[in-house]
Computed example of a mutant assay.
Amino acid sequence: MADHSIAGKTVLITGGAKNLGGLLARDLARQGAKAVAIHYNSAATRPAAEDTVAAIKAAGAEAAAFQADLTTAGAVEALFADAIAAMGRPDIAINTVGKVLKKPFVEITEAEYDEMTAVNSKAAFFFIREAGRHLSDNGKLCTLVTSLLGAFTPFYAAYAGTKAPVEHFTRAASKEFGARGISVTAIGPGPMDTPFFYPAEGADAVAYHKAAAALSAFTKTGLTDIEDIVPFIRFLVSDGWWMTGQTVLVNGGYTTK
């Protein structure tokens, strides 16, 4: 029977330098992962990536960081090649990359649409493709989406709309990779208390989101805490392997399908 524990496994996390990805990288190292490769996008994030690498090593795992703009297929291919050369073939691949845009539909430019598609859809597609090519048998693959996939709301057409294809990528990949024992999932947190959330929102919207979830009163800020998402991803890439092809919204009662 396949081993679905995290202990001894090699992990690749995009957006793994800070925020949810960084916390997840540290957590999986503490769970006994053998090696954790983290990706970060820009030079400005390098110090955070170095801090996360140090924390992973302190937890007893091997670690390395790789910088890349993942909006081309070639860059995603290169990331996997570099990570495999340094750390070995991954058993767990997690994509946390994303970009938020909140703007009226009629004001969204073609350039903005193209950028959102490249970050939220294209990068995810080729990450899933490369994971399908390179994950070990019985591997685990998880992509971060958004709880807005279960919302009826204005102004997020370019954000939720370019995350939405990942739901079908997940279904299709689960069918195609399942013969090798690979589980494929997507997880959609509610609005998270990270620096990515606040620049896109005005004060009224922030107040609304902080009160919108059924369990808002029991979090630090009313928003989704990244600490509450990590256990779900940990489960999906370990003992939760039997759930595959699914997009799961984890948000304290913020939206549902």
Rank of each mutant, 00 (worst) to 15 (best):
residue 67 Q to P: 10
residue 189 P to C: 05
residue 228 D to Y: 11
residue 53 V to H: 02
residue 9 K to W: 04
residue 29 A to C: 08
residue 12 L to D: 03
residue 47 P to Y: 05
residue 158 A to S: 13
residue 173 A to T: 09
residue 41 N to A: 14
residue 214 A to D: 13
residue 257 K to D: 14
residue 214 A to C: 09
residue 36 V to M: 04
residue 196 F to E: 14
residue 127 F to V: 03
residue 117 T to W: 15
residue 173 A to P: 07
residue 41 N to K: 13
residue 205 A to P: 08
residue 160 A to E: 09
residue 80 F to M: 06
residue 151 A to V: 11
residue 257 K to P: 15
residue 133 R to G: 10
residue 144 L to T: 10
residue 182 I to R: 01
residue 193 D to Y: 03
residue 79 L to C: 09
residue 150 G to I: 03
residue 192 M to W: 05
residue 130 E to G: 08
residue 98 G to N: 05
residue 31 Q to S: 15
residue 234 R to P: 11
residue 198 Y to A: 11
residue 146 T to P: 02
residue 257 K to F: 12
residue 255 T to G: 06
residue 217 A to M: 14
residue 55 A to F: 01
residue 107 E to D: 15
residue 155 F to V: 11
residue 63 A to F: 01
residue 240 G to D: 03
residue 235 F to H: 13
residue 215 L to P: 02
residue 238 S to Y: 08
residue 171 R to C: 01
residue 136 S to E: 15
residue 90 P to R: 04
residue 63 A to D: 06
residue 44 A to M: 13
residue 138 N to Q: 14
residue 101 L to F: 08
residue 135 L to P: 02
residue 138 N to A: 14
residue 214 A to E: 14
residue 91 D to F: 00
residue 61 A to V: 02
residue 29 A to Q: 08
residue 125 F to C: 06
residue 195 P to V: 08
residue 61 A to M: 05
residue 207 A to C: 07
residue 94 I to M: 09
residue 19 N to M: 12
residue 57 K to N: 10
residue 80 F to A: 04
residue 229 I to A: 02
residue 57 K to H: 07
residue 193 D to W: 02
residue 42 S to G: 12
residue 189 P to R: 07
residue 157 A to R: 07
residue 194 T to H: 05
residue 108 I to V: 15
residue 176 E to P: 02
residue 14 T to L: 09
residue 99 K to L: 15
residue 35 A to D: 02
residue 65 A to S: 14
residue 2 A to Y: 12
residue 128 I to N: 11
residue 27 D to S: 15
residue 177 F to L: 15
residue 181 G to E: 00
residue 235 F to P: 06
residue 198 Y to C: 06
residue 9 K to F: 05
residue 192 M to L: 04
residue 13 I to F: 09
residue 145 V to F: 04
residue 140 K to G: 10
residue 143 T to Y: 03
residue 28 L to K: 01
residue 32 G to Y: 11
residue 221 T to D: 01
residue 107 E to N: 12
residue 93 A to E: 08
residue 83 A to Y: 05
residue 22 G to D: 08
residue 145 V to D: 03
residue 219 T to D: 09
residue 8 G to W: 01
residue 253 G to Y: 08
residue 95 N to S: 13
residue 178 G to T: 03
residue 40 Y to F: 15
residue 99 K to Y: 14
residue 156 Y to D: 00
residue 143 T to A: 10
residue 179 A to L: 13
residue 67 Q to T: 14
residue 216 S to P: 00
residue 3 D to Y: 08
residue 216 S to Q: 06
residue 184 V to Y: 02
residue 68 A to N: 10
residue 95 N to Q: 14
residue 16 G to S: 02
residue 61 A to T: 00
residue 34 K to I: 00
residue 196 F to L: 13
residue 95 N to R: 09
residue 54 A to K: 10
residue 143 T to W: 01
residue 211 A to S: 14
residue 207 A to V: 00
residue 99 K to I: 13
residue 129 R to E: 12
residue 110 E to M: 12
residue 58 A to N: 10
residue 179 A to Y: 15
residue 68 A to E: 12
residue 95 N to P: 10
residue 120 N to Q: 05
residue 1 M to E: 15
residue 73 A to Y: 06
residue 15 G to M: 03
residue 215 L to G: 06
residue 98 G to Q: 07
residue 155 F to P: 07
residue 62 E to R: 08
residue 196 F to S: 13
residue 156 Y to F: 15
residue 50 E to H: 00
residue 172 A to V: 12
residue 109 T to I: 04
residue 112 E to G: 07
residue 75 A to R: 09
residue 244 T to Y: 01
residue 84 I to C: 09
residue 74 G to D: 14
residue 54 A to T: 10
residue 214 A to S: 13
